[in-house]
Write a protein that binds this DNA or RNA. Structure first.
Lengths: 343, 343
DNA sequence: AGTCGGGATTTGATCGTTCAAATAGAATCC
DNA sequence: GGATTCTATTTGAACGATCAAATCCCGACT
């Protein structure tokens, strides 16, 4: 290769990595040779020398754990892979059963220099993985706030998340604009950071007095039938709500089925904009996954470039970001016979 | 490291890769040192020397294209990652818009020695990717038969798939065992290899005369509303069917909603056993994804070991396998109020 | 005793790249 | 004119592992 362009190997390397160091004339000659020989640098050799893998690890968690909203991780993964490719970064998957196994796997990936950093998802209260990563000074970013962590602003912890309260505010205001006056909220029982945050958005926007609010707010497991039952009870009560906003598409689907059963057209809004929402045709709050992926990479590597910044304090700028969701509005699909959606 | 165990670097390498070459006493000493120093071999150095990346590439396709059944790829990916890890193999993601972009990306991954092989999914009629991979002699295995390829048995093409006809046969027999006599089939319009195969299973098991069969078989887009409308028409006809078997969970969900609307309990069976089926509570044909992942790796690397076999003819044994699906049976959930599912 | 055989271990070379330092060449300065 | 500076390019070494060949060691055989 170097011979073909009559230059040294280092010049070839420079053309690829620091083109401005090379005289334009030489550069063209080398580029010509690269083209002719279809030369591609050997990734492993580069990694060995630079001591960077240019690869980010992400855990794929069990499908069963995700339910209908599994498509969120899916969409995120897709966006992340695309955006990372633009920076010359690869995404490596790993799987693990349980926290300890995951920590062990992360250790392996770092020790063997398979990855430079991790993207962590599905964070939980007092997540052990995160404590470990911080302690080991392994670069990572999490999609999801550190629920239960005292210092949300700790610069050693980089995170990006979507503002769920804002999402439910939008959802509530949307159904009110459609004419609803008494908007019910179906969420999960209290000890859920995400659920409580989403409920907060509804509280802020529903405009009901506290007593009525208590009547119209229910918490059930993330399950279609539980949600359907809860919705049924509300609908059969003396003062039925005239709209439902929900903390997830599973819950929204439950509400929707309760409504279908009664032949009602009451609007329902879900959360996560899963394929189910698109297929069934109800509105849903959509997380801006490409944006989340962008920000995640930015928090790891700065506004551009493909090198992971080890020390977050060198990033200049905040080490966490909260993004705004978007409401995907879908027609009410009054009767099944008339319904058609975009696909 | 080598010093710590008072042996040469090569002996350390042997302990790791060919332990039986090393005297047990020495081996123990080296293993002790490995433990003490937490030594882990550097993946890139190994890859550079061995000229193998021990990594398999797989494309993540756009979420929008998958709809409700996106969880199938998800589940497969998870199983594949786990199984590959057991063989010391990693899974690398890539994304691409369009066939040409995908081929370009594959070329890069191979040229830069990022991956040793590919797992191809979502195969289509006369898939160009596959022709290209075969021509370039790049090792790959596809999850999905080569629809439209003349020679299904071409040993240069390794594939694994699930027997959809068998799945629909099981589904049909199941609802008949529940007492159904006239089982309707909701599938996709003809020019779909997968759809036609699944229909075939219903044809074999439904036990109806051709004329009645034609009445009870409908083809619509993979869309909840279209399916609901088709189911509605059948239900409102003079001789309504007493069960539905469907080519996908989207279609099954549509049928289910048409039934809920009418307060009926007619059994419905879907395909792919997505989270939707679990959440809503209808039976569905489940693809054995861990098995598919196992077989895919076996076709690439032989019954065990972590080295991709470049020439399929050295595999001894068939280069393609058709697996049997399993029927996930769920209670009919007669009324929403009583329904509870496992999660 | 010397040689042979074979298992265990070591040595030297190599994979393909980038880093760091050296060199060559041209332009600038005093 | 020679020293100085700067740019463009080359050279030697190193990254950390494995391959292939060489060496060492020990017991068996002649």
């Amino acid at each position: 290769m170097a011979r073909e362009a009559r230059v040294s190997r280092q010049t070839v390397s420079n053309v690829l990595n620091q083109p401005d160091l090379v005289r334009p004339e030489t550069r063209r000659r080398v580029e010509g040779a690269i083209e002719r020989l279809r030369y591609r640098p050997h990734a492993s050799a580069r990694r060995l020398r630079t001591r960077r893998s240019a690869t980010i690890g992400i855990r794929l968690d069990p499908v069963s754990a995700n339910g209908i909203s599994g498509s969120v991780l899916d969409g995120f993964l897709h966006a992340l892979t695309e955006r990372a490719a633009e920076r010359g970064i690869r995404i490596l998957l790993y799987a693990a059963n349980g926290l300890d196994a995951e920590i062990a796997e992360c250790r392996r990936l770092i020790d063997e220099s398979e990855v430079d950093a991790f993207v962590v998802t599905s964070t939980t209260y007092g997540d052990r993985r995160i404590a470990w990563l911080v302690e080991q000074r392994i670069p990572f970013v999490s999609f999801g706030r550190p629920w239960g962590v005292t210092d949300l602003g700790d610069p050693r912890y980089r995170w990006v998340d979507v503002d769920g309260a804002s999402g439910l505010r939008m959802a509530t205001e949307h159904v009110k604009a459609l004419g609803a006056r008494e908007v019910a909220f179906i969420g999960w029982p209290s000890p859920s950071g995400i659920g409580e945050e989403r409920r907060q958005g509804w509280i802020e926007a529903c405009g009901l007095d506290p007593e009525r609010m208590a009547e119209l707010s229910v918490g059930v497991g993330d399950d279609v039938h539980e949600a359907a039952q809860a919705a049924s009870e509300l609908l059969d009560s003396p003062r039925p709500p005239d709209a439902f906003v929900c903390a997830s598409d599973s819950l929204a689907l439950g509400a929707r089925m309760a409504l279908v059963e009664r032949g009602l057209e009451t609007p329902v809004v879900g959360f996560d904009d899963t394929p189910v929402a698109a297929a069934v045709g109800f509105s849903s709050v959509s997380q801006p996954l490409p944006g989340v992926a962008d920000v995640a990479l930015e928090l790891l590597m700065g506004p551009e470039g493909g090198v992971v910044v080890d020390d977050p304090s060198r990033l200049l700028g905040p080490t966490h970001r909260l993004l705004q969701p978007e409401l995907m509005i879908r027609g009410a699909v009054p009767r099944l016979e008339e319904g058609r959606n975009e696909r």
